[in-house]
Simulated assay, not measured.
Amino acid sequence: MTKQAPGGFDVTQPNVARMYDYYLGGKNHFPADRAAAERIIELSDGHVREAVLENRAFLGRAVRYLAAECGIRQFLDLGAGLPTQGNVHEIAMKEAPDALVTYVDNDAVVAAHARALLEGDPRVRFLLGDLRSPEEILAAASESGLSFERPVALLMVACLHFVPDEEDPEGIVAAYRELLPSGSVLVISHACSDPVPEAMAAAGGVYGRANAPFEARPAARIAGFFDGFDMVEPGAVPLNEWRPELDALPLRGGFLPVLGGVGRRP
């Protein structure tokens, strides 16, 4: 029997946003989410927690770089997930108070939390939508206040590995590329299967019972998402190697099977 929370969503099926929140030490999760997340923690020997923390740190560095050094003032965050510490609007607006941020997610759980958090700030919007529909997303973002006459930062952080091959993730990214104005930037982080293929395949089995599938990909496939963009140095690299802070600590696990990068549309 399906059990629903007061907001009307199913709490018996693991939810990838709530699992991510659990990895980060948040409080927005249910027993099914915790059980699935603990299985992923076991499969990764605990390194998934380090990976998600590095993912948040990468996102923060990328947004700061774009706002402070590149003059980007518009951010479109796809597959935004549950609000947590160091959200895109908080980072961007610290560097540029005139920044505009639109979050997009297709998860009703995320929508409920995000709207409660973001209510009252005209510079921040949340859209319920599916990143697999680029034209619809950009049309809705335009209506929400973003101008596609000026550069936009398109953030696809830790979301493309939840888009299976049969839904053509490369084609989706290419469609966004063609719709974005010159000077726009693409930020991607993506789980990489090369270092630990068996563990990544096992993780896919766990996520196969959640609300979205999971598919880690080889480094060459991840780099291919940036086709048509000029890569910002150092390219698509393990997250901890992308413009690290001077006081960054070494990885506990010795390597990070998640790549990230930033590309600029000519």
Rank of each mutant, 00 (worst) to 15 (best):
L78D: 07
L78I: 08
L78P: 06
G79D: 12
A80F: 02
G81P: 02
L82G: 06
T84Y: 02
Q85D: 15
N87C: 01
V88T: 13
V88D: 02
V88S: 02
H89G: 02
I91L: 07
I91R: 02
A92L: 05
A92Y: 07
M93C: 11
M93P: 00
E95Y: 06
E95K: 04
E95H: 09
E95F: 06
P97G: 10
V101G: 07
T102P: 00
Y103E: 06
Y103S: 03
Y103G: 00
Y103H: 10
V104F: 08
N106C: 14
D107A: 06
V109T: 14
V110C: 07
A112D: 14
A112S: 12
A112W: 06
R115W: 12
R115F: 12
A116V: 15
A116M: 14
A116R: 14
A116Y: 13
G120N: 12
D121R: 12
P122R: 15
V124T: 12
V124F: 08
R125Y: 09
R125K: 15
F126R: 11
L127Y: 09
G129R: 15
L131E: 06
S133M: 14
P134G: 05
E135K: 11
I137M: 08
I137Y: 01
L138F: 04
L138Y: 04
L138C: 04
A139R: 14
A139Q: 13
S142T: 13
S142G: 14
E143T: 11
L146I: 04
S147F: 07
F148I: 00
F148Q: 02
E149Y: 03
E149C: 08
E149T: 10
R150H: 10
P151S: 05
L154P: 00
L154Y: 04
L155N: 01
M156K: 00
M156A: 10
V157T: 02
A158W: 00
A158N: 07
A158G: 08
A158R: 01
C159R: 03
C159Y: 00
L160A: 03
F162E: 09
F162P: 09
D165V: 03
D165N: 08
E166L: 12
V173T: 03
V173W: 04
A175D: 08
A175T: 10
Y176I: 02
R177Q: 07
